[in-house]
Design a protein around this nucleic acid. Sequence first.
DNA 1: ATTGTGACATACG
DNA 2: CCGTATGCCACAA
Length: 117
Amino acid sequence: MDRPTYYDQVFAVTRAVPRGRVTTYGAIADFLALGSARMVGWALNKVAYDLKVPAHRVVNRKGELSGRVHFNPPQRMQELLEQEGVTVKNDQVQNFKEILWIPADHLSQEAFDESFE
DNA sequence: ATTGTGACATACG
DNA sequence: CCGTATGCCACAA
């Protein structure tokens, strides 16, 4: 699309997160070099009821499942993560630093832009 | 145009 | 660790 909305970009990055890995709101915002971490969570909220985007792989900078309450039902987020091999305890992703996936380290801005033509 | 609203992040006490 | 404050900025009304 000519004019991808902020949502589209957030969704695209989120879909790029591999199974068993997680990323953070800040990392996505940083990669997009647009908006802020707040925008990311806000964008995901719009699609929380759609299963097209693996929103469960996005957590806050502490590795907490801060957005779980927006799932249906809330514990669904943790279940999905554990299903992918991610251990979650007390609403926190275990081994967080090991499985953290930073978009900026694996995606090129150019290739990303092209996907919106 | 103005205001309100955040699934955040960082700084400070 | 906890609460407060501030920056952040796209989007809906």
